[in-house]
Design a protein around this nucleic acid. Structure first.
Lengths: 194, 194
DNA sequence: AACATTAAATACCGAGTGGTACGAAATGAC
DNA sequence: GTCATTTCGTACCACTCGGTATTTAATGTT
């Protein structure tokens, strides 16, 4: 009966998605430790109390930015592992994404945050651990499927293969973030799956 | 004739080596971005102006700390690649050092600094690049020798192999710094040399 | 019109940063 | 002793950080 109560008070003008997107881009391109709340407020054209009302603290914003990254960038990559195509094709696509994917010019936000996790808040650290598990599960499923289809000989355990894939993709992302070209090393590393 | 002039003025009490050693340990164990000049002064029992007189600025101290690390830790590791022993033995020793070496409980200062090089000064960044080249040269020499001795088949170029070795060792160090056990992944990665 | 409610932004806080001005202290030279 | 020289450390600087107290603005309710 009192449904109109929801719309009382001054209408909010802060666009949460917009702020998160800007924060994600900033953390992504400049590194999580290089972006302050102050500068983020300026870029987003938002006052500081508005930011803190919406996200609680820096940890909350960083966490939201990472979550946005996982859902808008990583999820799409991982989804490709489940689609059609041969094992070799998918490995090739993985290499392509990790080395030339248009949206990865500066590495991977997840990898960058993981590298500096000591200086991040507890919520963000939990999110990093969660994302890590999600990725490992996806790789595990990918290899399980490949083994079942006889696409991959499976000369070593699937769990190790998943860890290995995760580590090598992460390495390539870290190299990209440093301005190096990870292609040759990554291809060599993934040649063990042939 | 005026050689005694050297000893005029108040005698200096600051022990440069001691300070560098403390700085190196601090950067190493807590991460370069987590250690301030203020806290370093306290730990070393030295006044701030003394530090700045000796090292110029933070960049100078970080650079000196990295240089000390390279000469006191990395050099010894690299030296082992040149000693006696079979190729397989040396690879095994490399794995051992990267995964269980007693002095590497917290990863590698070089890898940590490289991971956060954006927030370091120009001198330190140059030192990082220099160290990178030194390591690559050592790996190249190592592989060249192995190829000559028919210890390694050499199914791919030596330069790529050196990059690969450097990248995989660095990956293992980064994993250690995160608290993970890099052993299985590293052994798998280096199995391509068999 | 008066009020409750919600969000806005200014202006501030304490703490910590990298870095320095400056006077005191310790020595050799004269 | 007096002086020049060199190093010492206290006390300070301007600045940035994450975070907030407080006032003002904008709405629905009555």
């Amino acid at each position: 009966m009192t449904e109109t109560k929801k719309y009382r008070g001054r209408p909010k003008t802060l666009n949460k998605n917009h702020v998160v997107e800007i924060a994600m881009q900033a953390y992504w391109h400049e590194g999580p430790t290089e972006v302050s709340m102050n500068s983020l407020c300026q870029r987003a054209g938002v006052s500081k109390p508005s930011l803190y009302r919406e996200f609680g603290n820096e940890d909350g914003l960083a966490c939201a930015a990472l979550e946005n990254y996982v859902q808008s960038v990583m999820a799409k990559v991982i989804e490709k592992l489940k689609g059609d195509g041969s094992f070799a094709d998918k490995i090739g696509r993985l290499v392509f994404i990790a080395t030339e994917g248009t949206r990865h010019e500066n590495g991977c936000l997840f990898v960058k945050m993981r590298a500096t996790k000591l200086s991040l808040g507890v919520k963000t650290q939990s999110m990093i651990a969660e994302t890590e598990n999600m990725a490992l599960e996806a790789y595990t499923q990918f290899l399980d499927e490949a083994k079942e289809n006889r696409d991959w000989s499976g000369t070593f355990p699937v769990t190790l293969g998943a860890q290995y894939l995760h580590a090598q993709i992460g390495l390539a992302m870290a190299q990209r973030a440093r301005g190096e070209d990870p292609t040759a090393v990554l291809k060599l590393a993934l040649s063990i799956f042939e």
